[in-house]
Amino acid sequence: MSSASEQVDIRSTLRLWGASPVIVLCIGWLLAMILIAIFADLLAPIHYTTQDLTARFRPPAFMTGGSADHLLGTDHLGRDVLSRMIYALRTSILIATLGTLIGAVMGTLMGLAAARFRGIVDMVAMMLCDVQTALPSLFIAIAFLAFFGNNIVLFIILVSFEGWERYARLARGLVLSEQTADYIRAVEAFGAGTGRVVFQHLLPNIAASLVVQATLNFPGTILLETSLSFLGLGVQPPDTSLGLMLGEGRRYLLNAWWIAVLPGIIIFLTTLAMSLFGDWLRDRLDPTINKEG
């Protein structure tokens, strides 16, 4: 009973926030994906590496020849596509989330430093931003992976390159305008150190815009990870990611389209939901639109 009333509550809150049914749907989808990723171990019917060479290319249950054993069919090694998708989702979301966090933190810190210290720090930071703009993160990632070989830590760091310069520019611009405000000057006039000024006052006051930026950036991060994995340069077998499943499945399109298409749908819907959610959040929260409160 309480959960039902809570649900109604959440829905009316969202509506109060101006959330259209589409946005509610997006939030619902994203929550579902996150929950599936978290509880992958409980939800996956079969372990994702379990092969059954006697059951290769089984079609999904809704097609003729499909069975309830493999709801979404099997791949070229007889592995359960549903189970693999659940684990692939976990990997993709984990990498994209870590990548987004690392990129947001590094970019924000760089922007903060540029705006607070100005001078040479600012110049170097802005030059690095220029380099990132000139060289899309896909190419930077490919260059690093080509020369250093693939490992998961490097891969996550490379994924975090997606859009870090946007946080840096955003944070720099916001801090530059915010730090001339009287409340910052007042705190400085009390003798507060840079740490207190930045982390107690500046950061909380610009956080909303940065969160919106992170939301808008997340689809790009997912696409970078899945693109690299699709090209065979990202997540390596026996691990799996949504992009890697697509990359592997594209060789069997003719007789087993589901191996590639099903994970593709998940990627598509997730990035779509995140983009719409991000746009909506920006309209709601961006302090340049909504200054008071």
Partner: peptide, 11 residues
């Protein structure tokens, strides 16, 4: 523009 290029190609 939300459609991943690789997915569109495969479709």
């Amino acid at each position: 523009y939300s459609m991943p290029v690789f997915f569109l190609g495969i479709l």
